Computed example of a mutant assay.
Amino acid sequence: SEEGGDLELSAGGGRTPWDMNRQVRFAAGSLVLLGLLAGRKAPKARLLAVGIAGGLVHSGVSGSCGMAAVLGKLPFNRPDDSAIDATIEALRDR
Rank of each mutant, 00 (worst) to 15 (best):
S1D: 15
S1K: 09
E2T: 14
E2L: 13
E3N: 15
E3V: 13
G4H: 04
G4I: 10
G5S: 14
D6W: 04
D6G: 07
E8L: 11
E8Y: 07
L9K: 01
L9W: 13
L9Q: 01
S10P: 03
S10D: 06
S10I: 04
A11C: 11
A11L: 13
A11G: 11
A11F: 15
A11H: 07
G12S: 12
G13L: 06
G13K: 09
G13R: 10
G14N: 03
G14T: 02
G14E: 03
R15T: 09
T16P: 05
P17G: 05
W18S: 06
W18C: 01
W18H: 06
W18F: 07
W18R: 12
M20P: 03
N21G: 10
N21T: 11
R22A: 12
R22T: 14
Q23L: 12
Q23D: 00
Q23S: 07
V24N: 02
R25L: 13
R25Q: 13
F26Y: 13
A27I: 11
A27S: 07
A28V: 05
G29E: 08
G29V: 09
S30W: 14
L31Q: 10
V32F: 01
V32G: 04
L33I: 03
L34P: 00
L34H: 11
G35K: 05
G35N: 06
L36P: 00
L36K: 12
L36W: 06
L37I: 08
L37F: 03
A38G: 08
A38Y: 09
A42G: 05
A42V: 15
P43T: 04
P43S: 06
P43M: 05
A45M: 15
R46E: 14
L47M: 11
L47Y: 05
L47W: 07
L48C: 13
L48D: 01
A49E: 09
V50T: 11
V50I: 11
G51I: 04
G51L: 12
G51A: 14
I52Q: 04
I52T: 06
G54E: 12
G55R: 05
G55K: 05
L56K: 09
L56P: 01
L56N: 07
V57K: 09
V57Y: 09
V57N: 02
H58T: 07
H58N: 08
S59K: 02
G60F: 00
V61R: 10
S62A: 09
S62Y: 01
S62H: 02
G63N: 04
C65W: 00
M67A: 12
A68I: 01
A68T: 00
A69H: 03
V70G: 02
V70H: 02
L71W: 05
L71F: 07
G72M: 04
G72A: 01
G72F: 02
G72S: 01
K73M: 10
K73H: 05
L74F: 13
L74H: 00
L74G: 02
L74W: 15
P75F: 08
P75K: 03
P75N: 06
F76A: 12
F76H: 14
N77R: 07
N77P: 02
N77G: 03
R78T: 06
P79L: 12
P79F: 11
P79T: 11
D80Y: 01
D81I: 11
S82N: 13
I84A: 15
I84R: 10
A86P: 04
A86C: 03
T87D: 09
T87K: 06
E89G: 01
L91Y: 04
R92K: 12
R92Q: 10
R92A: 10
D93T: 08
D93Q: 10
R94K: 08
